[in-house]
Design a protein around this nucleic acid. Structure first.
Lengths: 231, 231
DNA sequence: TAGATTGTTAATCGATTAACAATC
DNA sequence: TAGATTGTTAATCGATTAACAATC
């Protein structure tokens, strides 16, 4: 998204943990979760060994692209044989930093924030939602997905007290930058925003933006070309 | 999503409506909604004329990038002066195909589908949610955001009856491909999926995928590099 | 005219694709 | 050994950046 694609930062090349490892390009990093997803599917089906052809099919990319991407992580396949599903999953998880559970705080508990707080896929993929914050007094104090919603002035202690490193912004656009600044001040290192507005973060903080209305507008562009309406 | 970037299709080059107009590159198309958003903000502030510097600042890109992108649409600025906010907004809306209202059907009315059905930004940006579908008998018949949820076998007539051209998939991953096939069969030309699974569509249908758990995993990659955990 | 700012060109950079030698 | 499949190299392609001539 892409996508967005908006918001991906390159990262410091050569700063990888393993000595001698090449830097992983941003476009490759963005596809790794998809490979992990496909590998989990194979595991569930009892598949032990897979090929770049099969795995690429499951992830929706070409075999060449898959092999090229994996080559940045190291040599985890065997020529003439393929990849061990379990081992490759593990290696990708290590590269993505999923061996440690990450804690997440969500700000803005409207319809979307509520849905995200209840989203079971987060837990399945190694993320724990540990805090919810909203500015509306009618929402503060209610329980959502097993957590009591806190007021904005509790944000800092919530983040530091839980060692949360990632913040999710699900507020109206009008307050998104203020929330973003507060999350940065509280010490998160990554932010995922759903607010339809460009946000500024310091270079030390990683920002990714999902704008669902923009996604529809991008679809409309192709729609227009097909139906001929518009120009 | 890198759409996810993932999922953008190039479109037929040269198939644009205006004769002599160059094809608009996918990366540029993906940024146009952001420019439109920034322009609307300027309009709200009463700004009549803007510069590539100001507009780029509002959209979170560089002035060079903005000018390069706009150059694919035509020459809508005046050298030495800048851009007319209203006129430029209009031109971008035309290019994106937003002069016609697009109708949208949402399949999967769980927490996320509910939030999307109630998302007011869709209407503000020219999209009308005209139908909701869910497979759960306990959900079918309930009213969400002013619409009565329909059973799956009503999908085809719902799409054709409303001239919906875009479908949104907010179901569990396990049924996403079946829903996708049904939407394609029903005649939509664009699909936005939130299900964490690679989907196959015919080349005539445009697919964009948003995977919020993958977004967190991409953030975790940079988090790892910063905290040193993982490798 | 002088200053400002666009639109375009050229240079750089990164990502994708294709082909094949290495090797299991 | 013969067949299969990876990992890598080279070629292509597209996107970004920077500089500046055109022009308001």
């Amino acid at each position: 998204m892409d996508t967005q694609r908006r918001g991906t930062r390159a990262g410091e090349p050569g700063a990888s943990g393993r000595p001698g490892a090449r830097a992983v390009p941003p476009a490759t990093v963005a596809r790794l979760p998809g490979y992990l997803r496909a590998l989990r599917g194979l595991t569930a089906d009892g598949v032990v060994t897979t090929s770049s052809d099969e795995l690429a099919g499951g992830a929706g990319v070409t075999p060449a692209q898959l092999r090229k991407d994996l080559s940045f992580l190291g040599s985890y396949g065997r020529r003439g044989v393929g990849y061990d599903v379990g081992h490759l999953s593990e290696q990708i998880a290590v590269v993505l930093g999923l061996t440690t559970q990450r804690s997440v705080v969500i700000v803005g508990i409207g319809n979307l924030g509520h849905a995200l707080a209840s989203y079971s896929v987060f837990a399945e993929r190694g993320f724990a939602v540990v805090g919810l914050v909203d500015a509306d007094p009618a929402v503060v104090g209610t329980t959502v997905a097993g957590l009591v919603v806190q007021p904005p002035d509790e944000l800092a202690s919530l983040v530091s007290g839980s060692d949360a490193t990632i913040g999710i912004i699900a507020t109206p656009a009008s307050v998104a930058q203020d929330v973003c600044d507060a999350l940065v001040a509280a010490g998160v290192v990554g932010i995922l925003t759903f607010a339809p507005r460009a946000l500024r973060v310091p270079p030390t903080v990683d920002l990714r933006a999902v704008d669902v209305a923009s996604e529809l507008q991008i679809l409309a562009f192709h729609d227009r070309r097909r139906t001929g309406t518009g120009a």
